[in-house]
Design a protein around this nucleic acid. Structure first.
Lengths: 213, 213
DNA sequence: GCTAAATATGAGGCATTCCTCACATTGTGC
DNA sequence: GCACAATGTGAGGAATGCCTCATATTTAGC
């Protein structure tokens, strides 16, 4: 029996009807969180929007944050799946380094353009439990490792310490794209930014071991 | 007369006693927000910690978020002052590009190591009003422009579009350092990361206009 | 020292939200 | 079609936190 924690559901839906209920709740929660923000979202409102009674909601989620977490986990799963899908070709044919990096950036842009407002609420506003944040970081690391492997197929790539390079690479792209999509600065368009990023990463990965001050 | 908005104080402290009260409230708020996080922080608790009655608190702050905002603004002011102080030498003598970039990174690290837990609560957890976020972005842009000017003193620096480059530079360093300090990954130390970042930026800024895919 | 303004107090009203529970409805397996 | 399990309902209890206000104390200015 799974431990009865602050986030575990009380009951798992077994009949189709119940599964539909859970689905409706998650869909409604996504809408309400997105529109009202985390703080203003109430369980009553989610239930109402889902066309379901609060009682039903509490059959499957012990509290508001459990809904948030379920939603976030689903969002993260979808996100990684999307990025992998966009990078999958790079696993079969080996594109030029520049193209590979560009694909990575483009994939990250696509990722952040999927439900950006919900994304913002989940990752900038909601108090995600540290367990979820840890889980996310773990998956980011795995992803970084995969990207790293892709890069090492290129002879011109020089990495002092692949772990550090992968960390910098993934977090740089993620952070810049995140910021750009969710808080668009004036006077900068996506293309210039993409170019600039690709150029920076390309320079970094194929640079001679230069003087570093 | 200043407009009576959701964030303006009702009364400004004029006597020394009142100034001390406001100060005590802000100090207490910093402690409580840092220790309990945003959601669990109550105005009653802040007042108690400040050794002041709730009533007094509400003389100077119309609500909980006004305290958060005041605290954030102060934190931001302190932060920019610190970074400027650390970069001020670079304004008189012109260090080698590598040293300049290293200084920038080191300054950012110092910035994030000042009250990191409070920093995390303010910028990752608290629902900062968009006015505050906008204000912050404006100051970041100003800062980026200044850094850009420093860079242009170096003949080897090539920037296609200084605006974009400055944006990428500042946000990359900020995001990476922020992440690293507030969510330390295992197996990566500050020095390796600093080196890697400096190398990347250096490569980027002094790179030939290479093929970009 | 006296008066008026500034400041401080804290019990409790008000509003809000979370969540339960007793009961109703629907589905399943035989 | 029956009995039991699964699911659904929603009014309202309980808890919490924000903030007010009537009153008390301190300070400033004369």
């Amino acid at each position: 029996m799974a431990p009865r924690t602050r986030l575990n559901p009380r009951k798992r839906p077994s009949q189709a009807r119940a599964k539909a209920t859970v689905e409706a709740i998650l869909v409604a929660a996504a809408q309400v969180f997105r529109r009202q923000g985390y703080a203003a979202t109430t369980t009553d409102r989610i239930a109402e929007r889902a066309g379901v009674s609060v009682g039903s909601l509490y059959q499957y989620f012990p509290n508001k944050d459990a809904i948030l977490v379920a939603l976030t986990e689903r969002h993260i799963d979808t996100g990684f799946a999307l990025v992998r899908e966009l990078l999958v070709e790079a696993l079969t044919d080996v594109p030029a380094l520049g193209s590979l990096l560009r694909r990575l950036v483009v994939a990250m842009v696509a990722l952040h353009e999927h439900e950006p407002e919900l994304h913002r609420v989940l990752f900038e506003e909601a108090p995600l439990p540290s367990s979820v944040r840890r889980q996310l970081r773990k998956r980011e690391n795995e992803f970084a490792t995969e990207v790293c492997a892709l890069l090492q197929a290129h002879p011109e790539v020089r990495m002092r310490d692949p772990k550090v390079t992968a960390y910098v690479l993934v977090h740089t792209v993620d952070a810049l794209v995140h910021n750009f999509i969710l808080h668009p600065p004036e006077g900068i368009d996506a293309e210039s930014l993409t170019d600039e990023m690709v150029r920076m990463l390309l320079g970094h990965l194929s640079a001679d071991e230069a003087f570093t001050g």
